[in-house]
Every structure is written in C-alpha cells, then in structure tokens.
Amino acid sequence: MKLLILGGTEFVGRAVAEAAVARGHEVTVFHRGRHEPPEGVRALIGDRTAEDGLAALADGRWDVVVDTWSGAPSAVRDAARLLADGRVARYVYVSSRSVYAHPVPAGADEGATLVDGSPDAAGEVAYPQAKRGGELAAVREFGPDRSLLVRAGLILGPWENIGRLPWWLGRMARGGEVLAPGPRDLPVQFIDARDLAEWIVSAADFGLCGPYNLVSPPDHTTMGELLEACARVTGGGAELRWTDPEPILAAGIEPWNHLPVWIPPGELHGTMHGSNVWKAVLSGLRCRPVEETVADTWAWLESIGGEPPQRPDRPRVGLDPETERKLLHG
C-alpha cells in the first residue's frame, strides 16, 4: 500500500509509520518538522493549522491516509476534503473512547451513546467533542464505507509523550516505599501503541470501515501486574505499599492524574477499564504481555537519558514525593 500519515513522528503516528515500513509499504509522513521522522519514510512539511498549511499535500495519490489529529475538527475536515476527491481511497481516523457520553456502562461496545460534535468546529474544543467532530469530518468527506474510526483507549508504550507509564517507571527507579493504589487485582485496560499500529495497518489493508474500540480485553492485566513489572525492570529496589482507595482519595490525591492509569472501583473505572473490544479482537487485534510493554518502555527511556518527551497540550502527571510520604507515614 501507499500510506499517508498526517503526523507520523510522535508516539502513535510514529508507531504506525514504523509498522507500515516494516511490512514493506510505501509511507509518506506529513508533519511540522519539529521531530525526526522514522527511517524509511518520505517526509512532507506543513502545519495544518496555518493558512495554506496543507500546500505540501496538493499533489499525490495514496491508498490510505491515517490521521491522529486531536485538536479542532476543522483541521480533519480540511485535510479530508483536500484528499477525498479521487486522491485517497480510504481515511483512517485515530479517535478515542472519549467520544462516548458519560456515564459509559461497563461492557459497552461501539453502539454506546456518543457525545455531540461538529466537523466544522474550530478553535478551542474539548477533547471528547474534538474527537467526535473529527470522526464526523472523516465520515462526511469519505463516506461510511471508506472511513475507519479507531476509538483507542489508554495508550502506553515506547515514545509515549503523555508521561503515564514513564512516570511510574521513574518512580520505581528511585526506589524506597512506593504508594501502590489498590486493589492489587484491579483490572486495567490499555493498548501498546505498537499493537494499535499493527492493527491499524492490517485494518487498512483489509479495508475495514466503521467504528472499532481499540484497547486490550478487560482481563488483560491488573494494577498489581503493571506496577510489579515496573518495579522489576527498573531494579530500583522499590517496595510497593498497597493502599486502599479510601485513604488515597481522602488525601486529595486524584486518580488518573496524580496516580496515572489508576481509577478506583466504581462507575468511572467501568468506563475506562471495562470496554467491550470483541469487534477488534475478532478482526485480528493482538495485545502483547504487559511485561513486554513495560520492559520496552524502560529500555527506550534509558536510551534517551530517562527524560521522556512531553506534549505541550497535556498537563504533566504524577504524585509529588511529599504527598506520597505523608500518606504512607502520616
């Protein structure tokens, strides 16, 4: 295939580019030139938010375009409109499970209620509405039979630029007593960016269309398995102190933000870690063991000096040492 990736130099886009190149596909990445593109791709430079920012895409034909945009939907609309008229056969939009309206029942599939969104929205748009608007833009310009909506859940793995798994790895590497939010057997759903990328490339090749939830099955791993793997691979002598949710919440510690990945049992946990993904599994989704994701992410962090990249549009995550100490020792 000839693939055009809008992005392609960071995290998910980079993983898609590398997966496609590894399979022998011809890959073009369109990006702003702020990061080095993967080896083996052709690079086009442009800023889709600027006036005439899509000029580099004025010519060319591709079989598939993969778009990871998470800002205003109007950017998806403009790119899709430019490429729809006989220049690209299929549009793959990497969306999010955030497009489902809260509360999302545990076990909900792709038919769950969606948030409202507009393909023409510009400026500052909340993340759920931005992703839903991007979906609508792709479908409007390419039609339901030529658009694939990849509703990803929590994404981890090498090149992560949000900081969730890198924070836990850095904390374990410092050693000492570590606040481990329980219960230890609490299910966790995530997808390694590389597994997501492999599925996207295969789905594009097979011509899949419509929405797919993309995250691991609910029984894939637990908080215990995730954090214990982090402690093992870093070798920092971390001592996990498993703590019930009640004192953690009473201390003002925020799930997901202060303690990345973790959400205590309840409605929100069912929303984030209880997604029905059988449609994706039956179409070929395979998820590597949590130990592999953790070990490879740690190896990548060590290779870049331990300081992960950070997306400027996302807040830093993690718990400050003093708050952790107070909760553990009073």
Rank of each mutant, 00 (worst) to 15 (best):
P245C: 07
D195S: 04
V317F: 06
P265V: 09
G46P: 01
L226M: 15
L328R: 11
S95Q: 06
A130H: 14
A130L: 08
D313G: 05
I200R: 12
A122M: 01
S283I: 02
E228K: 05
D63E: 08
P265S: 09
A17N: 02
L44R: 10
E267P: 05
E228C: 06
R311S: 11
V104C: 02
P183E: 02
D244F: 14
A197E: 12
A43S: 07
A80C: 00
A295P: 04
A121W: 10
Y91P: 06
D67E: 00
M223N: 03
L83M: 04
Q310M: 14
G306K: 11
A238G: 12
R316V: 08
H269E: 09
T293K: 05
G252Q: 10
F190T: 03
G224P: 07
L240Q: 13
H258A: 09
G224I: 11
T297W: 14
P217Q: 15
A130S: 14
G24Q: 02
P103D: 08
G237H: 05
A15S: 15
G210Q: 09
G175M: 03
P309W: 10
V76R: 08
W167S: 10
P144G: 03
R90P: 01
L114P: 02
E322L: 15
S202M: 10
L82I: 00
G157L: 04
A89C: 00
G170Q: 12
G53M: 02
K279D: 05
A43M: 01
A295D: 11
T222A: 10
P264V: 12
T68I: 03
R23W: 11
G157C: 01
P166W: 06
F11D: 01
L149G: 00
G53V: 03
N276T: 06
A299I: 14
D116K: 13
N276D: 13
N276P: 01
R241Y: 01
P105H: 06
S70Q: 09
W298T: 05
R314G: 06
A58I: 00
E322W: 15
I155A: 08
